[in-house]
Design a protein around this nucleic acid. Structure first.
Ligand SMILES: [Mn+2]
Ligand SMILES: [Mn+2]
Ligand SMILES: [Zn+2]
Ligand SMILES: [Zn+2]
Lengths: 161, 161
DNA sequence: TTTCCACCTTAGAATTACTCCAAGTTTGGA
DNA sequence: TCCAAACTTGGAGTAATTCTAAGGTGGAAA
């Protein structure tokens, strides 16, 4: 009759907590702007750019400045809490707050990035950390090309069936 | 007494041939500038940026334009003959003509990229190609952080031993 | 709770990698 | 050899990112 009150913290909530903790641990301040940016980063799987984060958070903070978005991203990347994945055919850097081992797929046509879970990446991470001699801050595991949708579009455009 | 005249084409020569063939196969023209850029790309393991390629080839072609470097790189990347690895702490994209399976290590401090051979990457490539549904043009397998040299430098700067 | 300052945010200017353009040149097939 | 499509070039243009100076604030300490 007693329900088991285990709240399963969602993946997104865990990510958000991790981002905030990373800032705290580094002695950086938790401003409302940073909280909002972390919240957005933790709850999306879209691999947003700085501009996209800005556009998404701006409504909640009309005074928000792009510089703050860049500052916060820079801090999170330098702390290893967010990965900088690079461009996707657009000239802008995409960010990923999902640190679970996976590779990312970028479409050079529609500029979207999606995840491809991949257990093998965990081994890769381990090996690189152990063998490289580098102090690893982040990874950028991206395959780029054309997504299924954009392949279809391209095929319709050129009559080569 | 007859020597066996097998010339073992060096890795770099193979790469150069592959780059030129990729351009030919795509119906693109082999201009002296493109040849020089391909030659440089094939013979370096420095993962150069467009500007660095320009600086390296310019002496041989005083009339060379940056636009030509960008055009050529764009063509090679779209053909999958060269990989665009993204930045290394500098704001510029680094390129890699070495298509052998490996991961790249970027130092955010000195902006250098080096290779880490890794057989596991071949499997990763296969799996992504097979399972993603994407038409894969290239990969960007980079771990970024601080190289051993820069770690040492950082340690000397901050007295935390 | 109040104080206080090092750290933050902000708007806008500055930087710069990269792209675009128009005019002149070249490649490579016919 | 001839020529049209493709290429190169210098310079202007674009836009992502960084820088700067002035005013605001988080959070530790009293
Ligand atoms: Mn991802
Ligand atoms: Mn490499
Ligand atoms: Zn697409
Ligand atoms: Zn270094």
């Amino acid at each position: 009759m007693n329900e088991v009150l285990v709240r399963v913290s969602s993946e997104a909530q865990q990510r958000e907590a991790r981002l905030l903790q990373a800032l705290r641990d580094a002695g950086l301040r938790l401003t409302p702007q940073r909280r909002a940016i972390c919240h957005y980063l933790a709850h999306t799987d879209a691999h947003p750019t700085a501009q996209q984060i800005f556009a998404a958070v701006k409504p909640e903070f009309p005074s928000l400045s792009l510089a703050t978005v860049y500052n916060t991203l820079d801090a999170l990347v330098r702390l290893g809490a967010v990965h900088a994945l690079g461009g996707a055919g657009d000239g802008a850097i995409h960010y990923d707050a999902d640190l679970r081992p996976h590779v990312n797929l970028a479409c050079l046509q529609c500029h979207r990035m999606v995840d491809l879970p991949c257990e093998a990446v965990a081994d890769l991470n381990r090996r690189v950390t152990a063998e490289s001699g580098y102090r690893i801050l982040g990874a950028r595991l991206v395959y780029y090309g054309l997504c299924p949708d954009c392949q279809r579009t391209a095929r319709e455009a050129s009559p080569t069936p």
